[in-house]
């Protein structure tokens, strides 16, 4: 995962012209950028949504239901 991130960043940071691109004929630079950008958007957005939702539920469980939590068992509860 970490290696993937490092490589992804390196990939996005590298100038487009440094790559000989054999099969991108007919691709404009704008279009390449749009494909890469939307790939990133589509790939990261769902994770953001899911983890945002999980975080919200976690927060809600911390604030609303604390008394109930203490009543059952408080040790080491993980959010779900």
């Amino acid at each position: 995962m970490n290696a993937a991130r490092v490589l992804l960043v390196a990939f996005l940071a590298s100038p487009t012209t440094a790559w000989a691109c054999a099969v991108c004929g007919g691709f404009s630079d704008d279009e390449k950028g749009a494909y890469i950008g939307t790939t990133a958007l589509l790939s990261f957005l769902p994770l953001g949504l899911i983890f945002g939702g999980v975080y919200y539920v976690y927060r809600a469980s911390q604030t609303h239901v604390t008394p109930m939590l203490e009543r059952t068992e408080s040790s080491d509860r993980s959010p779900q």
Partner: peptide, 20 residues
Amino acid sequence: GTEIMFFAGMISAFLISKAS
């Protein structure tokens, strides 16, 4: 959340078409 992804898909399509 699903709806957001639905619109993200359409906006992605729009951006790509716009760029091309």
